[in-house]
């Protein structure tokens, strides 16, 4: 076939030395495309937090005493719940990639773990920015009135973004660890329940004392408190720093875990 001969001369023009960064961009575009076509996942990631917020505000809100309007109290928690749940679906996508045939294609193209995972994480971040904005929109509609200046908004958004990034990388590691996509899916439920045992929905001092220790020291509490303080213009204290440390720590640990697991999984 003359066509084959023609395309073979093409080989000489190609350098075939794509950088990892170039590959990561291509993989990010892939991740975004796949995400935008998984309509059911997208709808779950958006509808579920909104339903939860309406439920908390209108069903439980009347019974929960927080000292402020409950909608104002609960929005940071719902945002974290939404972001955490949305990011945790990264575990499922990573697991699907790993157990489908596509990983062999990527490996024979000499693409390392970092670009493959970066694509999924970037897609997760983009997906969650969209759903976070939507949750904010609904919150405004039902009476959420924050009292933050531009800097407060910027800092709150920054922490939220870091949290999304941290949960996405952590989920990617879980996706590598899981034996199947179904197992990875179980992880999303664990992440979804984490905010319940924090100050996200109810003040910690209303919890039994054995749970208070955990609730105070798990990452969701300082992150919630930091975002709440920044949005409402109330004192944040050390919470912002602790939140940053948690997020940074989770990202670092997850990256190390991802590198080791990817190598082992594809050996």
């Amino acid at each position: 076939m003359s066509e084959i001969a023609a395309t073979h001369t093409l080989t000489t023009e190609t350098t075939r030395s794509t950088s990892s960064i170039g590959q990561a961009f291509v993989m990010t575009a892939r991740g975004l495309r796949l995400t935008s076509r998984k309509l059911d996942a997208m709808i779950t990631a958006i509808v579920l937090p909104i339903i939860l917020m309406l439920m908390f505000v209108y069903l439980f809100g009347g019974a929960i005493q927080t000292g402020t309007d409950y909608v104002t109290y609960v929005v940071p928690g719902v945002l974290l719940l939404c972001a955490g749940f949305g990011a945790s679906t990264t575990a499922v996508s990573v697991s699907e990639d790993l157990h489908g045939g596509i990983i062999d294609r990527f490996r024979s193209l000499d693409i390392g773990g970092l670009p493959v995972l970066t694509g999924q994480v970037a897609a997760s971040v983009a997906r969650n920015i969209v759903s976070t904005v939507l949750v904010f929109g609904v919150a405004f509609l039902i009476g959420f009135r924050p009292d933050a200046d531009a800097l407060g908004w910027l800092e709150a958004s920054g922490i939220l973004l870091l949290f999304i990034l941290a949960m996405s990388w952590f989920s990617a590691a879980i996706g590598l660890l899981a034996k199947s996509a179904e197992a990875a899916n179980g992880f999303t439920f664990f992440v979804m329940f984490l905010p319940y045992a924090s100050s996200a929905f109810v003040p910690i001092n209303t919890m039994p004392s054995w749970l208070q220790g955990f609730a105070h020291h798990q990452p969701v509490t300082p992150i919630t408190e930091a975002i709440r303080g920044l949005l409402l213009g109330t004192p944040v204290g050390d919470n912002a720093w602790i939140a940053l440390l948690w997020c940074g720590g989770i990202i670092l640990a997850s990256l190390v875990l991802c590198a080791a697991l990817y190598r082992r999984r594809t050996a």
């Binding site: 075939r16 030395s17 794509t18 575009a29 892939r30 489908g100 062999d104 193209l109």
Partner: peptide, 26 residues
């Protein structure tokens, strides 16, 4: 290597799959 199981993204079009692989290959 073309394996027994199709190594492509179901949710991308044929053209998108091929272009992605071209880009990844440099």
């Amino acid at each position: 290597l073309t394996g027994q199981y199709v190594a492509l993204d179901e949710l991308q079009t044929g053209e998108e799959n091929l272009r992605m692989i071209g880009r990844l290959g440099g």
